[in-house]
């Protein structure tokens, strides 16, 4: 197949890079939310211990 013109190829290239960036961002967001939840739980345990 001949090379696609730039305006058409641009959509595919942008799509591929968006997939990559989105995948990494979603992954980091999930891990970030997990770490935030752990932080909250640790704070809750520390607060409960201090109250005792």
């Amino acid at each position: 197949m001949p090379a696609l013109p730039l305006d058409e190829a641009g959509k595919y290239v942008a799509g591929a890079y968006v997939v990559f960036v989105a995948l990494i961002l979603v992954y980091v967001a999930i891990i970030g939310a997990k770490i935030a939840r752990i932080e909250r739980d640790v704070s809750a345990i520390v607060d409960a211990e201090e109250d005792e």
């Binding site: 013109p5 730039l6 190829a9 595919y12 290239v13 591929a16 890079y17």
Partner: peptide, 24 residues
């Protein structure tokens, strides 16, 4: 990413679409 879009030339056969190669 800077090298992909501002340094590496377009492929003679595939053209701009070959840029996917650098992530894939």
């Amino acid at each position: 990413f800077a090298l992909v879009f501002f340094y590496a030339p377009n492929d003679a056969d595939q053209g701009f679409i070959q840029k996917i190669f650098y992530v894939h």
